[in-house]
C-alpha cells in the first residue's frame, strides 16, 4: 500500500505513515463491525438451541439489534463508585479494548494482506493475549468492591493456568511449521495431508492438540463453560459489576474481539488460514479472506454451541483440567511431535 500512496506524490516516510494508518483502520473497523454481527449471531444460535426466537425486533430479522444496544449504552450515564480508584477504574476497560485490537496487527488475511508480517508473529500474539488479563485484574481491584475483586483473582489464576498449555500447543505447531511467522505457518500447511488437504487439524499428532487449544481458548477468553469470572450466580457480574455505559461496552467489545481473535488463531494454526481446504484449482477462485472468515465462523459456531449446551465448571475443576490434564498432555505431545519430526525429517 505504501507504493500506492507514493504514486500520489508523497515522500516515502509520509506514504508509509499514511499506509500504516489506513491499514490499521482497514482492520480495526471491520473487526468492530464483525463483533457487532458476531454478537447477534451468538444470541441467535443460543436462542435457537434453547427454542427461543432471539433478537428479531430491531431491523429485518433483528439484524440491527447490536447497534441499538450500542446506542443505548452510549446514551447512558457513566457511574463511578465513590470508593473506586478513579484513574484505574476508567483505564481498565480501555486496556481490555486496546489489547483486544492490538493482536490483529499480525493476523494474515491473505498472502499479502497482513499489516505487520513479523517473524515472531505467534510470539507477539501470545505476548499481547497475556496482557488481556490486566484489564480484568485492574477493573476488579479499582472497583473497590468484593465481587469484582473475587472475579479479578479468578481471572488472573485462570488465564495464567491456560496460557501454559496454550504455549505448549503452539510449540507443537511451530515445530511442524518451522517458523513463528503466521504466514509461514499457513504456507507450511499447504498440501500437508497426502499433498491434498491444507490443514494441520487432520494430522493425528496435531488433532488432539487442536482439541486442547480449542478448550484452552474457551478458558482464555472466559467463555462458557469457563466463564467463572462473570459467574452471575456467584459473583453478580464479576469484574463488570460496577461498570456502566461506555466503560461497560468497551469490556463487552473487547471480550468479543478477543473471541474472534481466538477463532482466527484456531483457523490459522490448525485449519489452514486463508488457504482453501483442499488443493484443487477451482477452490482458489474464492478469495483467501473468505476461506479465513468461513473457518473463523465455524469455530465461533462451536463456541456458541458449547455456551448453549455445557453447564459452567466449578473453579477447582477448571484448575484441575488446566494443570493436571492439559499441561501433562500437551507436554507429552511436544515430546512426541518433536520425536516424530526428528525421525521423519532427520532420521535416526
Amino acid at each position: 500500500m505504501t507504493e500506492f500512496f507514493q504514486s500520489l506524490g508523497m515522500s516515502y516516510e509520509w506514504a508509509w505513515f499514511v499506509a500504516t494508518l489506513a491499514g490499521i483502520l482497514l482492520i480495526a473497523l471491520p473487526v468492530m463491525l464483525a463483533v457487532a454481527y458476531i454478537i447477534y449471531f451468538d444470541r441467535k444460535v443460543i436462542a435457537a438451541i434453547s427454542l427461543r426466537r432471539g433478537p428479531n425486533v430491531v431491523g429485518p430479522f433483528g439484524l440491527l439489534q447490536s447497534f441499538a444496544d450500542g446506542l443505548k449504552v452510549f446514551l447512558q450515564e457513566t457511574i463511578i463508585p465513590s470508593g473506586a480508584n478513579k484513574g484505574l477504574f476508567l483505564l481498565a476497560p480501555i486496556i481490555t479494548f486496546t489489547v483486544a485490537l492490538l493482536a490483529w496487527a499480525v493476523i494474515p488475511f491473505g498472502a499479502e494482506a497482513v499489516l505487520a508480517n513479523i517473524n515472531v508473529g505467534l510470539l507477539y500474539v501470545l505476548a499481547i493475549s497475556s496482557l488481556g488479563v490486566y484489564g480484568v485484574v485492574i477493573a476488579g481491584w479499582a472497583s473497590n468492591s468484593k465481587y469484582p475483586f473475587f472475579s479479578a483473582m479468578r481471572a488472573a489464576a485462570q488465564m495464567i493456568s491456560y496460557e501454559v498449555s496454550i504455549g505448549f500447543v503452539l510449540v507443537c505447531v511451530v515445530i511442524y511449521a518451522g517458523t513463528f511467522n503466521l504466514n509461514g505457518i499457513i504456507e507450511a500447511q499447504r498440501g500437508h495431508g497426502f499433498g491434498f488437504v491444507n490443514a494441520y487439524g487432520f494430522n493425528l499428532l496435531l488433532f488432539p492438540m487442536w482439541v486442547v487449544f480449542f478448550i484452552s481458548s474457551l478458558a482464555e477468553t472466559a467463555r462458557a463453560p469457563f466463564d467463572l469470572t462473570e459467574a452471575e450466580s456467584e459473583l453478580v457480574a464479576g469484574y463488570q459489576t460496577e461498570y456502566s455505559s461506555m466503560s461497560f461496552a468497551l469490556f463487552w467489545l473487547g471480550e468479543y474481539a478477543n473471541i474472534l481473535l481466538m477463532c482466527a488463531l484456531n483457523a490459522i494454526l490448525f485449519w489452514g488460514g486463508w488457504l482453501p481446504p483442499f488443493e484443487w484449482e477451482p477452490l482458489y477462485m474464492v478469495p483467501g479472506i473468505i476461506w479465513l472468515f468461513l473457518k473463523m465462523f465455524l469455530t465461533f459456531f462451536l463456541f456458541s454451541w458449547i455456551w448453549a449446551t455445557v453447564p459452567r465448571y466449578r473453579y477447582d475443576q477448571l484448575m484441575r483440567l488446566g494443570w493436571k490434564i492439559f499441561l501433562p498432555l500437551s507436554l507429552l505431545f511436544v515430546v512426541m511431535v518433536s520425536g516424530w519430526i526428528m525421525y521423519t525429517r532427520v532420521g535416526l
Binding site: 505476548a127 499481547i128 497475556s130 496482557l131 490486566y134 488472573a156 489464576a157 488465564m159 495464567i160 496460557e163
Partner: peptide, 14 residues
C-alpha cells in the same frame, strides 16, 4: 513481555 509482563507481574499484582 510474555514472561515478565504476562506471568511474573501478574503474580506480583496478585
Amino acid at each position: 513481555v510474555i514472561v515478565y509482563v504476562g506471568a511474573v507481574a501478574v503474580l506480583f499484582l496478585f
